[in-house]
Design a binder for these strands. Structure first.
Length: 666
RNA sequence: GCCGACAUAGCUCAGCUGGUAGAGCACUUCACUCGUAAUGAAGGGGUCCCCGGUUCGAGUCCGGGUGUCGGCUCCA
């Protein structure tokens, strides 16, 4: 038999040769280092994950004759290599847990981005502490050191179920039964390491000794099979790397990520705070309000340029409106409801029904369309307590919501414009946004034909836009398929920012019409879109993205003037007034403190510019300019300093809210 | 909502096995008037999250609640 290696060379091997044989035939060092074999798929780019596509083979598996193969070796660049040892580590974790906590039921333990987890059902009364983590890790290290091979065996399903029944491993029994009914298989594979045998598709490395560095990180609850109606298991998270230095580096990155957590930054920078009197709602401090208002202002000006009009609709509606829209049936539990004079009202959790209703209150001609109707609407959603998360998931927030009522002919163009608009925004912030296409959910209104059509139109728009996107089957809204725009936070959690939704259903339910050129009544199409998403979440993402070091054009205080001594205060205020007159947001630190102290405080506040003024500057009508992080940048006349700051602001975007608001920040 | 952890001064945190609270920063006052990341001294400040229980005695132990954190489910 023969296989082809990545360099294009062919290699002859005896029939039935394995990956281990191949590695050994190349060299003993490689044989020791090899983790597995990758079948190269020439159609796939190098960075695609073969692990998830089943193209990784155990070293002990026979090589397919004529295949193009690659030997997977320890490398941080190689996601497959990391997944292999992380999956190995998950098995070793389960092995150690079963030893230390007899009677534990095991379920599943896959590798994930950055690590792995394993879900257990511990015997009653067991809850894991840090000390337990250390005990488990110590036990795991013993097994790693023992160089236990991962041995694969194929077992008929009947025997497999029997084995697990005897051990009381109900979750495994259920998994196998589902494999039988869903895939019609008659045998499963087991992997054994030490005394631990796990139902597992594989692949694995040859032995536990390949695990060079690992750490258990956290415990969490997780529903069995992701189903909230079923048992909650205990999930243990951990990670593994090819060497200790990489593990250390990873842990350090996690630490750094925590330092840029927007909740921490918000408090440190004096932007916002929270109180138990209103869980899930933000108290915006003056500086945070300044930032918030700037984004709203940016949104308004960009919308005006793109032909939107702004409306204001009520916060509170009789339940009738939600019944018409269909939200009452789907989301009643998540609406804040109150009763008054025998009528039931709900606080709006979204603007669409209000906007649809507003559209229906007027008469429309095809000449009026597209009608792009925007509202930075204040929304309230009764989110379950456990889901709240800083600014990212709140109960009270403002969305840059807009609804475009248009004819079917206009849809393609309008959706395209929405996407352009969205990326015009994200570019201003250097956001790496990823695009998801969410298709029809199980619970939905409208016929399959209609959904075929709506999905087809959005897909077409995506293709036209040339954007890369992933498909999220079944993740659409009950009334519309969606294009969702996501960003990740400092810890890699993905959050939806923008959304563009194509909706034929609400116009139908609200019986919206316009008069066409043929003088007949027609049904408009409704495009729902939010591009910042909620301003709250956008600011959370923004802070983490910039680690709190906002670009000059966004910084709540752009410059602080630092008088050296009290006698320079008057001049400092003169300088500040000149900055304000130029539309910059400036403050004076007139405390009786050393200049070193004022600089330190301004640096910690991440103020972009510090203008130090003393006798020399006052004589010359100048300022000594200091840039945050960069240090002293020399002395220059006031006018030049202003010019420089103004140019930096202009280069980044548009000057938005001007100077007067900076006062609050001082 | 579910599982787990946590909750002490404005912030960050100490407080051993129960004996009625402490530091640094911040704040106030006074002195210092300062040249690029902390001037010094003095002072004020706490229903130890809330409710109940055990106990001679609870910040500390137990139960319930609330909030926060990490996940899970959900996210129009």
């Amino acid at each position: 038999m023969q296989v082809t290696l990545p360099d294009g060379s062919a290699r002859e091997l005896p029939d039935g040769a394995t990956g281990a044989d191949l590695a050994a035939s190349i060299g003993p060092g490689l044989a020791r280092a090899a983790l597995a074999i990758r079948i190269v798929d020439e159609a796939r780019p190098h960075d695609a994950s073969a692990y998830d596509e089943g193209r990784i083979l155990d070293l002990a598996a026979p090589l397919p004759d004529g295949a193009r193969v690659e030997i997977v070796t320890p490398s941080d660049e190689d996601l497959d290599a990391l997944k292999l040892i992380r999956h190995d580590t998950a098995h070793v974790l389960a092995e150690a847990v079963l030893e230390l906590y007899p009677g534990t039921k095991v379920s599943i333990g896959p590798p994930i981005d950055d690590g792995f987890y394993y879900d257990f059902e511990f015997p009653d009364g067991v809850s894991l502490s840090d000390a337990d983590f250390e005990r488990i890790e110590a036990k795991m290290r013993e097994h790693v050191k023992a160089d236990e091979p991962f041995v694969r065996e194929e077992v008929p399903v009947g025997e497999a179920i029997e084995r697990y029944r005897e051990q009381g491993q109900d979750y495994k029994v259920e998994l196998i039964e589902d494999l039988i009914s869903n895939q019609g298989i008659d045998s499963v594979t087991f992997y054994t390491n030490g005394d631990f045998v796990d139902l597992c598709r594989g692949p694995h490395t040859p032995s536990t000794k390949r695990i060079k560095a690992f750490k258990l990180l956290s415990v969490a609850g997780a529903y069995w099979r992701g189903d909230a109606s079923r048992t909650m298991l205990t999930r243990v998270y951990g990670t593994a790397f090819h060497d200790k230095a990489d593990l250390e580096a990873h842990l350090e990155r996690l630490e750094e990520a925590r330092a840029r957590d927007h909740r921490k930054l918000g408090r440190e920078l004096g932007l916002f705070t929270w109180s138990p009197v209103s869980p899930g709602a933000t108290f915006w401090l003056p500086k945070g309000t300044q930032l918030f208002n700037q984004l709203v202002a940016l949104n308004r000006s960009m919308q005006v340029e793109r032909g939107y009009v702004e409306v204001k609709t009520p916060l509170l509606y009789e339940s009738e409106l939600w019944k018409t829209s269909g939200h009452w049936g789907k989301y009643r539990e998540n609406i804040f409801v109150s009763e008054y004079e025998g009528r039931e009202f709900g606080l709006k959790p979204m603007n669409c029904p209000g906007h649809a209703h507003l559209f229906g209150l007027e008469r429309w001609s095809y000449r009026d369309l597209p009608y792009r109707c925007a509202e930075p609407g204040l929304l309230h959603r009764r989110e379950p307590s456990g889901t709240l998360h800083g600014l990212m998931r709140v109960r009270h927030f403002i969305q840059d919501d807009a609804h475009i009522f248009c004819t079917e002919d206009q849809v393609a163009d309008e959706v395209g414009q929405c996407l352009d608009f969205a990326f015009d925004i994200y570019r201003m912030f250097d956001f790496p946004v990823h695009v998801e296409f969410s298709t029809r959910p199980e619970n939905r209104f409208g016929s399959d034909e209609l959904w075929d059509k709506m999905e087809g139109m959005l897909e077409q728009a995506l293709e036209t836009s040339g954007l890369d996107y992933t498909v999220n089957e079944g993740d659409g809204a009950f009334y519309a398929p969606k294009i969702d725009l996501h960003m990740t936070d400092s810890l890699g959690r993905s959050w939806q920012i923008g959304t563009v939704q194509l909706d034929y259903i609400l116009p139908e339910r609200f019986e919206l019409t316009y008069t066409g050129a043929d003088n007949a009544e027609h049904r408009p199409v409704m495009i729902h879109r939010a591009l910042f998403g909620s301003f709250e979440r956008f600011i959370g993402i923004l802070l983490e993205h910039y680690a709190g070091e906002l670009p000059l054009w966004l910084a709540p205080v752009q410059a602080t003037v630092l008088p050296l001594a009290d006698r320079h205060a008057d001049y400092a205020y003169e300088v500040r007034d000149a900055l304000k007159a130029a539309g910059l947001r400036a403050a004076v630190d007139d405390r009786t403190e050393s200049v070193g102290r004022k600089i330190r405080d301004a640096e910690l506040a991440k103020t972009p510019y510090m203008l130090v003024v003393g006798d020399r500057e006052r004589e010359a009508g100048a300022v000594a300019l200091r840039r945050h992080r960069e240090g002293d940048e020399g002395t220059l006349p006031i006018a030049e300093a202003i010019e420089r700051l103004a140019a930096e602001v202009a280069a980044r975007g548009r000057p938005l809210l001007g100077g007067p608001d900076a006062e609050v920040a001082a």
